Simulated assay, not measured.
Amino acid sequence: MAVRADARRNRELIVTTALDLFAERGTAVSMEEIARAAGLGVGTLYRHFPDRQALVEDIALDALRRLMTFGEAVVAEDRPNWQALRLVVEHCAGLPLALIKTLSPATTANPELARLERDLNALFERLALGAQEEGTLRGDIPPGEVVGLLNVAVCRPGARADDYLTTVILDGLRR
């Protein structure tokens, strides 16, 4: 069944508005505030997203899918692993990964979210191991721990590719 153009626009407007408000004021923004800021009725918002969890999961799925697509494309290119790892980390800066970390595995019923997180962690681990093998990433830190450090850098509010924390972590990992 095709989605009407106005319904599609409303859904996109809700997601964009929610992202803007979450970035500006944190995740405590109410659904009513999101609807008001989007210029829509609360009923319209709830027709698209029955609750906050559904809205955040939708945003999370979109962000993780985009990151996975980008990461796979970077890996498919013939480039050094360290360079590929940095490109993927830089791409993370534009995604709402801090918001995603607010989702609790106990309350998230969407198996695609868990699969995407596992696949992305595996992709980061492969890149880290490859960079260690090529001698561009320190070899004394297990690849899984490298992923944990990178999560600290990119999965926080306001994370940017060129901010001090991301820069220090990448500089510290570089051999």
Rank of each mutant, 00 (worst) to 15 (best):
A35V: 11
R36I: 09
A37I: 12
A37R: 15
A38W: 03
A38M: 05
L40I: 13
G41L: 08
G41A: 15
V42S: 11
V42K: 12
V42A: 13
Y46T: 11
Y46P: 08
R47K: 15
F49V: 10
P50Q: 14
D51R: 15
R52P: 11
R52A: 10
Q53C: 03
Q53P: 07
A54T: 14
L55T: 10
V56P: 01
V56R: 00
E57Q: 05
E57D: 02
D58C: 11
I59C: 03
A60P: 03
A60Q: 02
L61I: 12
D62E: 14
A63W: 03
L64Y: 01
R65T: 14
M68W: 14
M68H: 15
M68P: 03
T69F: 10
F70K: 13
G71E: 08
E72N: 13
A73R: 14
V75R: 15
A76H: 08
A76Y: 08
R79G: 04
P80I: 09
P80W: 03
W82E: 14
Q83N: 07
L85S: 10
L85V: 09
L87W: 06
V88M: 11
V89Q: 02
E90I: 02
H91G: 11
C92N: 05
C92D: 04
G94N: 08
L95R: 05
L95H: 03
L97S: 03
A98F: 10
I100M: 02
I100D: 00
I100Y: 00
K101N: 09
K101L: 05
T102Y: 00
T102W: 00
A106F: 14
A106G: 07
A106Q: 14
T107G: 09
T107M: 09
T108Y: 06
A109G: 14
A109N: 10
A109C: 04
E112L: 10
E112Q: 11
E112C: 02
L113Y: 10
L113K: 01
L116K: 07
D119A: 11
D119R: 11
D119K: 07
L120I: 15
N121L: 09
A122N: 13
L123Y: 06
L123R: 09
E125R: 06
R126Y: 06
R126N: 12
L127T: 13
L127G: 13
L127H: 06
A128D: 02
L129M: 06
L129R: 01
L129W: 01
G130F: 02
G130C: 03
G130N: 02
Q132W: 00
E133D: 14
E133I: 09
E134A: 04
G135D: 05
L137S: 05
L137N: 02
L137C: 12
R138A: 07
R138Q: 04
R138D: 01
P142G: 09
P142F: 06
P143S: 04
G144R: 06
G144P: 05
E145S: 12
E145N: 13
E145H: 13
V147M: 08
V147L: 06
V147N: 12
G148Y: 03
G148P: 05
G148C: 09
G148R: 05
L150D: 02
N151K: 10
N151Y: 11
V152T: 13
P157H: 04
P157K: 00
A159L: 01
R160Y: 01
A161E: 05
D163G: 01
Y164D: 07
L165M: 13
L165H: 05
L165A: 08
T166H: 02
V168L: 12
V168H: 12
I169F: 07
